[in-house]
Each structure stands twice: as structure tokens, then as C-alpha cells.
Design a binder for these strands. Structure first.
Lengths: 191, 191, 191, 191
DNA sequence: CATGAATGAGTTTTCATTCAT
DNA sequence: AATGAATGAAAACTCATTCAT
């Protein structure tokens, strides 16, 4: 790995960790530099500024997550199995890098609006899957945005509770339970 | 209303609105004072400081919400009807003051840990209802924290989507749909 | 004098002095605050920022100078006497506040372009006087901008030489000599 | 041209242009390197630092200008013809490289004091010419520094006005007009 | 000789909080 | 109680210069 990329990676790692711990605004560029073992000024060779760094970090991870979920979902047929694949992937990824998810959850409020309208986000991926299932008659016709919200809520809120320490079990242990809840929420629509 | 209370109310209202719009850290005491039509210094007659103000605002609204939900739930019998009452109340309250909910969602990350361990929060209220339903045999035995998370996710995520503009319908129109999804998620547990 | 105005005046005085001494870029806000006997932060209650402060200082003094010269010129009749009045005033003002002139000369490069196109600057005042004299037949027809430049050069360059220490005599002692040179430069045009 | 000299020339050219455009302090070494198409570090192979570079650039061009003017003046006899030669040369040189003159005018405030006391500057060249003319009885006895300032002002101010866009005509077109004004200013002295 | 990443001291600016009026 | 000027600590960011490659 070239030196420049190695440094950028160190900065990203330090920043992600601190952002997840203390929040973006409570994390100073000084903290980030200290965590990365470099000088403050060096940050600005790799990022335009703190805001740009947050956005870059959010955007890259958010879209990568969407890509991975999309990839796995594409290998399955039928909504039930697609849900299982996606929820399972989310749970595994969450356990592998909880800081990243904590970061994503924390900054989404400010960052989502900055995403280009046509970006392939997790929200979009799931929406497409749901609309497809409706068209195939797998689940009743229903407002796709509301359906989307239900699935997101069912998956993200347990993750948040874990972050807050209100749930002890690892996310991977909840995978099937969450999948089932998603399936019921979608198939039981009374619309 | 005495003059002092009126001023405090103006400050709270201004702060809540700005916090919901821009986040706590992006809102300055100057902004709050300007929004309330008072001087910056006057804030400190009514609050110990900005942090205390955020906490007071969060705590009061969070506990009031818990109280109202608890009150309504207590009037009903049976999990299904209790859920309907609580979800319905949430939806109505959300439509009445979306800024307050946006504020609660935004700052919960930092505030939840500052709540006294025995505080009667919405999380506790719901947990008690669920545990009660399990004991009565209305729903299968299951991890109450996970069950809690599912219900919270099903209700809060659509509210978040509304805040982000991803859902157009008013929350009150989704009340029954969300109640049904909660019911299915709890009663369909395979634990 | 109200407190706020007194502080602003102290800042202006400190800044002008330092700008004249070391130049704008070599003068820090810390220097200015120290010179004014206030904290650095206090500057920003009175000025939007350093750039705005420089512009405000330039603009106010430059236009005031124009006003004073215009006023004096207006009391005289005939180009010769108008020139004498303006040059004399410039010399007196220069001796009274050399820092201000040094400041004006130093920053004009960057500030002139920021002046509104219709501002009544010293350049405009003099130009009007010259054009009037041409129309009255007091001096030969000539390019008014070039004529303007000649007069400005004849007056400002000695002031600059004084600032650099290349001239010892006070400007007031040169008043008549400069007036005569201006008159000759304008009346001897071979255009 | 050897490679090293070529690089140094590129740096000088880039720097001069940027200094004239934005001023020394607003020009970063990064800008200069980018303009020269080299790396930032390479600058320090050819100059001790930015300050040294500014000084070198000023000094070299200032003295070269003095030399050229001196050379031309030396070929003529009589103040009138000497003035014509020097003013004419200045105008031609200005049109050939206005950036250089803008640079000289801009940085003279800080650089003049750093010149060795015995340096043969344009100011000295002209002063000698004037003193000689006084001794020969071509013009009345007068303070040579003031006389010097008058000539400098008459020549430089139109150049400045051109830089600011207040004069459209090329300097070369003004050559005779300026020469005549200088002559009148010197010969009409009432001292 | 050249590169460009890294440094670190320094800059402007912000802002919660205090306090004289 | 209220005002708003002042504070001072800390923030993000800049940039001339150095140095390993």
C-alpha cells in the first residue's frame, strides 16, 4: 500500500471510531490526528475539510453496504429468501464493525439529504425488492415507502438498542427472528 | 402566565424548533435568543446552560410522552387494544408536534444515558406491557428487549421517514397498519 | 460616547496604526486586540471579520478624504485656486495623520476594485474639477484620466517618499511647489 | 539553457505573475509550484525561501531597470533629452511586461528598506541626472529629493492607473506627454 | 535534482458563558 | 429580570518549510 493511501486509511479508521464514540461534533480534528498518529495538518492533504470527510465516510460506507446487500439479494429468488439474505448480511456486518453502523446511524440525519437523488442506497435496494415482490404477487399491494420503513425499523432498531446496551444478544442471533418479523409485516398488510 | 414562565416557554419553543431543524451543536445560544426575541444573557436566568437546557427539554418531553402512553394503555385491556392505543397516541402526537419528535430522535443518542436508571421512559412502559402480555399468554414467550425493539422500530422508523420526506402520508393514516405490524411481530415470535 | 462605540473606535485606531506599520497581512487579529486592550473575540462584535474591517476602514477614510477635498475645492473659483486648496488640504491632512495615508496607500491595490462604481472618490472629485476647467477653457483639452494621473502622481509620490524617509521636509512645506507643478502639468498639455 | 536554470526561470515567471495578480501574501508556494508545473519542494532547490525569492525578484528587476535607464540616459546630452530617453524606456518596458511593474509597485513598500544603501536604484539614477542638470544650470536650484519625487510620480501614477484600468491608452502613447510634464515640473521650480 | 507527504506553528473565527449596567 | 458587550478557550484550517523516498 502506497504511503499516502496508508495514511488516509489511518485517518479514516481513527475518525470513524471517534465519531461512533463521541459523535461528529464532539470529535475534533486534533482528536482524529492524535488517533491516527499524524499531525493535524496532514488531514487536509487527504480531505477537503471535516465536513467533506464525514460525507465521504458516510457516502462510501452507506453505498458499499447497499452494494453488498444488493449483491446477496440478487442471488436469491423469492421475497422470503431475499429478506433472509439481506437481514442476515446486515447482522453479520454489524457484528463485524459496530462502529461503522453506529456512525451511519448517528450522522444519517445530516447526511441523507446530501446524497445525490439517484444514489443506489440501501433504502432504494430494499424498495426495489419490495416492489418486485408486490408485482409478483408474493405480498399484498401496499405503499412501498411504508413497507420499506417497517423493514428498516425492524432491522435497525434492534441494532440501535444494541448500541445503547439495551439488548445483549449478538445481532447474528436475532437474524431469523428479524427476518420473520419483516416477512409478517409485509405479507400481513391490510392495505 | 407569569412573565418569567412566558419567557422560559419562548426560549424552550425557540430552542426545540432550532434543535429539530439543525441539530443541537449547530444551534447557537445566539440563534435561540434571536428566535425567542430575547437577549442571550437572559437564557441563563432560566437554564443553567445549554447542556442543561437540552437535557431538561429531552427529559420533560420524553417522560411526558411515556406518561401519556402509559395512561392510554392503562385504560385498555388486551395487548392488541393496548398497542392500538399507544400507536394511535404516538401518531397523533407526532402530527401535532413533529419538531418535538425530531428533537427526541436526534438527541436520544446522547441523552438516554443521562436518564436515571429508574425513570419511567416509553421504553419501560412498552416493556412492561409486553412482559405482561407474555405472562398472560397472549403472545409467545420471547426476549422482551428484542420484542420492544421491534415495536419501537415499526413505529419510529416510519416517523423518521416522514421527517426525511420519504413518506408523504400523515402518521395518523398509518396508525392501523403499524398497530397490525406490531401485533404480528409480537405474536409471530418463533422463540 | 456609548461603550460599544468607544470600543469600536479603539479597535479602529489600533488596527490603522498596525496596518500602516506592518501591512495588513503581517498584522494579526491578536495584535489588533492587544493594541486596543481588548480580547480577540470582541473584534467580531464590531466587525464581520478582518477583511470587512480593512474594507470598512479604507472606504470610510477614502470617502471622507474625498468629501473634505471636494468641500474645499467647491469654495474656490478657478483651477489654480482649486488646486491650491486641494493640494494644501492633502498636505495638512497628511501631516495630521500620516498613518492613515500610509494605510490608504498600502491597501489601495486590493481595495479600489471593491468600491462601488459610483462612489465619490478623490479620483472622481479631481476628475470633475479637471473636466470643468477644460470646458471653461482654463487649460487645453486633454485626456482627463491622464491629467488626473499626473496630478495624483505629483501629490502622492512625495508623500510616499516621505513615508519611505526619502524626503525630510514636512508635506506642508511642499504645498506650493506641488500646486505649481500640478498647474504646469495641466496647463502645458500638448494634446 | 541548462535544466536547472530553466526550472528556476519557470518558478520566477510563475511567481512574478501570481504576485502581480494577487499580492505576495495571497500567493502560496503551492500556487507558485502549480503555475510553474513543478513540485513544491523543488522551489527550495532554487531559492532559500519565499521571502528570499521575493527579495531576489525585486532586487534583480529593480536594479536591471535602473541599469537600462542609466545606460540610455548616458547616451544623451541635456536634461530634456535624458528625460525623454528614460521616460520612453520606462513606457516601452512597462508595455512589454506590465506584471513586473505591478510587482515592483506592490512590494516596494517592504523591499526598499532591504536594499543596500549604496545600491544603484532608479531613484539614484534619476537623482544624479537631476543634480547634474542643476549644476549645469539647466534647471533652477531645488531640493533634489522633491524633484525626484515629482518625476517618479508623473511617470508611475499613470502606470498605476493603467494597472487599475483607469487609463486605456498604452503607456507608449503617453511617453511625450509625460516627458513634457516632467520637464515643466523641474524647470518651473520656484524654490 | 525532484517529489509530495508530513509537519507544526500560527491564523482567523466561533461561541457558551459572565458581568457591569 | 433583562441587556448585550466582553471574555477566553478552543475550533477548523493554512502554509512555508522539511525530509524520506
Amino acid at each position: 500500500m502506497p504511503r499516502a493511501l496508508a495514511t488516509k486509511a489511518k485517518i479514516e479508521s481513527s475518525a470513524l471510531k471517534l465519531f461512533a464514540e463521541k459523535g461528529v461534533d464532539q470529535t475534533t480534528t486534533r482528536d482524529i490526528a492524535a488517533g491516527a498518529g499524524i499531525s493535524e495538518g496532514a488531514i487536509y492533504r487527504h480531505f477537503e475539510g471535516k465536513d467533506a470527510m464525514v460525507h465521504e465516510l458516510f457516502s462510501a460506507n452507506y453505498l458499499r453496504l447497499a452494494g453488498e446487500i444488493d449483491e446477496l439479494q440478487g442471488r436469491e429468488t423469492g421475497l422470503r429468501r431475499k429478506l433472509a439474505a439481506m437481514v442476515g448480511a446486515f447482522c453479520v456486518l454489524f457484528e463485524e464493525d459496530p462502529d461503522m453502523f453506529r456512525f451511519l446511524l448517528l450522522v444519517q440525519h445530516g447526511q441523507l439529504q446530501k446524497m445525490p437523488a439517484d444514489a443506489r442506497t440501501p433504502v432504494r435496494v430494499l424498495r426495489d425488492v419490495i416492489e418486485d415482490a408486490v408485482q409478483r404477487g408474493e405480498i399484498p399491494a401496499q405503499d412501498p415507502d411504508v413497507a420499506n420503513a417497517l423493514v428498516f425499523g425492524i432491522v435497525l432498531q434492534p441494532a440501535l438498542f444494541k448500541v445503547y446496551g439495551q439488548i445483549d444478544a449478538p445481532m447474528t442471533a436475532l437474524s431469523e427472528r428479524l427476518t420473520e418479523a419483516c416477512w409478517l409485516a409485509l405479507s400481513g398488510a391490510a392495505d
